Computed example of a mutant assay.
Amino acid sequence: MLDQFIFILEGVPLSLALTIAALFFGFILAILYTGVLTLWEGKLPAKFMRGFIIFFTGTPLLVQIFLFYTGPGQFEFIKNSFLWSLFSQAWFCAVLALSLNSAAYTAQLFYGAVKNISKNQWEACLALGMSRFEAMKILIPLALRRALPSYSNEIVLIFKSTSLVQGITLLDIMGRARELSGQTYDSITYYAMAGVIYLVINAILIVIAKLMEKRALAFEN
């Protein structure tokens, strides 16, 4: 039984790598989305971005993963281009789907934090002769710090969401548990092992997120 547990445990690096990559790219994209929503509020770019966000928050992540993994192969111009070398890789499709999904949810969080910036702070920046873009460079970092407690939940959600990539042949934690279950038909044992691993790692991620939150919000105490 120990050998099987170690086999499932060997999927942790892949799950963590997917989590880190998705959070990194998702965070950068979320900043860009927030900038578009703030700078072009009520205009076409912001409306387009809202539609993009609605798609990724309104459809299941599993559907998005399968769309990226199986969809591009339906188009000859993609198969005959350099893009196919990327979309033919399950790892790339998983990171892409997780990143875009995370970016959509995170952008909503960040935009809400920006909207909560007081009118006086905006006016103070504008009164100093700053453009709206220059004011954003000062005020958005402040808003992001205040959004950190909610963003810490996204870290845990993304890690748990990596369990869906087993559907596109990746041997993460869940993928390895599923493989053992298929070989022995002992689903309860191996899925329980996977659950324990997820639980422990999530607890560690929560502690790390709380420490980051405490340090980032120290200026408000």
Rank of each mutant, 00 (worst) to 15 (best):
G73N: 14
K43H: 13
A17W: 09
A30P: 03
K119F: 10
I8Y: 02
I53K: 01
A22P: 00
A194M: 00
L109A: 08
L109D: 04
Y191D: 11
E10V: 08
A17S: 12
A21T: 13
Q89Y: 08
R146A: 09
I158E: 07
K115H: 06
F92T: 01
F75L: 15
A46L: 14
F68I: 00
D172P: 05
R215L: 15
E179W: 12
G182I: 08
F55T: 12
A177Q: 09
L96E: 03
D172W: 06
W40Y: 15
A209D: 07
K47S: 07
L211G: 12
I140F: 12
I208D: 06
A203Y: 09
N221D: 14
E220C: 11
I8C: 06
I197G: 01
Q64C: 01
N80T: 13
L62K: 00
S81Q: 13
T169E: 03
M193S: 09
L39V: 04
G58F: 02
E123C: 05
N116I: 08
V165L: 00
T70M: 13
G51A: 09
R178G: 05
F219L: 06
L211C: 11
V36T: 03
G26D: 08
F92H: 01
Y190D: 04
I188K: 09
V207C: 03
A90D: 08
Y33R: 04
S181M: 13
M49V: 15
L171N: 07
T184S: 11
L139M: 01
E41V: 07
Q74L: 14
K115D: 10
I206E: 10
V36F: 01
L18K: 01
K43L: 10
L62Q: 02
E10G: 09
A30Y: 02
I197Q: 05
L142P: 01
D3V: 10
N80W: 05
R50G: 15
S161P: 04
P72I: 10
R215I: 15
A90T: 00
S88L: 04
Y151I: 04
A203G: 05
P141Q: 13
N101R: 08
G71E: 06
F52H: 10
L44T: 12
R215H: 14
F52L: 14
I20P: 01
A97F: 09
Y111C: 07
S181E: 14
M1S: 14
R215Y: 15
A209P: 08
N116Y: 07
S161W: 02
E213Q: 08
A124Q: 03
I173Y: 10
T34L: 04
L61H: 08
F68Q: 00
L171H: 04
L62C: 00
I140N: 00
I53E: 00
